[in-house]
Simulated assay, not measured.
Amino acid sequence: MFTPHNRRRAALGVASAAMLTLSLAACGEKESTDQPGAGPSVTAAADSALAAKVPDAIKADGVIKVGTDSTYAPAEFLEADGKTVTGFDVELFNAVAQKLGLKAEYESAPFDAILPGVDSGKYEIGVSSFTINAERLKSVNMVSYFSAGTQWATKKGNPAGVDLENACGKKIAVQTGTVQVDDITARSKKCTDAGKPAVKIDQYQAQSDATAAVVSGKDDAMLADSPVGAYAVKQSNGQLELVGDIYESAPYGYAVKKDQQAFAEVLKEAVQAVITDGTYKAALQKWGVEGGAVTTAELNPSV
């Protein structure tokens, strides 16, 4: 069974990149080459030994079909054409696929539809900032490749006076189907248990909409994955700021079917190979998210 809280998503989405860029366009700031993600794509050389280990059913057409929720900048989001998926998750997995002699082909989908799609065979892998946790490991194999926590963001200056430890009565935005929903729901219960007003939780299907709600003032704050929140703040032209520290860090993982153990094993080797050859570091640095780098890829790590 796939439960929605299996993914730790956080702050800005892709549509966000597009949508937030539109909402902030009045500031007149232009995209520049020093922005996260600017510059040529990072690529990796194929490893014939690893490519030989890829199951025939997957490598037969030379393509690996990827399910992703492209509303989660800077991890995975849509370029200005509204079709091309980009982001650090995408660039990094492209390199992993290249190491295996494959080309990644992305299909955008609602977050909560991706793992069922992997299980049914619609997708050969899920790449969408999935947090590895015990519940998910019951249903899929997961290969770790990054680490992220949760962080909050508010309007610049925190005009609503949001306190992470006492958000009672505040309007808080989160993306549906994320661990942040569980987080803020638990905080709201503490409020009501103490006789204080509940947190008004606004859930959005796309993280971009949650971010836009804070920018517009509809909501007082949002909580999301640390790299996503930081990217949202950077892209806001001074309209947003981070509040509090990053907490509850956990690994992201690629998800493949539970019965595809051999593929999961070679996938782990491919991730380790891009870490070793420096491609991994280059991809993360390009997007400004090297703070979440890991040194070792693991298959179904204990969490």
Score class of each variant (00 low, 15 high):
A49C: 04
S208M: 05
D245C: 01
G13V: 02
S32I: 02
S23P: 03
Q151S: 06
T176A: 14
A113W: 00
L50R: 12
M1S: 10
V96G: 00
P159H: 11
D182E: 09
T3N: 10
T131A: 12
P110H: 10
N141T: 09
G229H: 05
A167Y: 07
T176F: 06
K65F: 01
Y72N: 13
S41D: 13
K286P: 05
Q261M: 09
G82L: 13
D81H: 03
K122Y: 08
F77V: 02
K190E: 15
Q203S: 05
A17Y: 09
D112W: 09
N6T: 11
A10L: 08
W152A: 10
K234I: 03
A73P: 04
G195R: 02
A250L: 15
A44N: 12
L115I: 14
D182F: 12
K65D: 10
Q203G: 00
L223Y: 05
I275W: 11
V228A: 11
V127Y: 00
V118S: 00
A167K: 06
Q151K: 10
L102Y: 01
S147Q: 12
S226Q: 03
Y280S: 01
L242Y: 15
S226H: 00
A194I: 09
S216V: 07
Y106T: 00
D69C: 11
G126Q: 07
D225M: 14
Q272H: 09
I64Y: 13
K258W: 02
L242D: 08
S139G: 08
N237C: 15
T3I: 12
Q35M: 09
E265Q: 13
A210L: 06
E290L: 13
S32H: 04
I64L: 15
N141C: 08
C191L: 10
G169V: 04
G157P: 11
P55G: 03
V274E: 02
T296D: 14
I201T: 06
I246A: 12
M19H: 03
G288I: 07
A167Q: 13
A109K: 08
K200M: 03
D193P: 07
A153R: 04
V143R: 03
C168I: 14
N6E: 15
K30V: 12
A167F: 09
A255Q: 14
T276L: 10
G161I: 06
L12E: 06
A230H: 08
A293T: 04
T295S: 07
A213C: 12
T279V: 13
K281C: 06
L92E: 04
A97K: 00
I275L: 13
M142E: 05
G126Y: 05
P159T: 12
A194T: 09
K59C: 07
V233W: 14
I64Q: 12
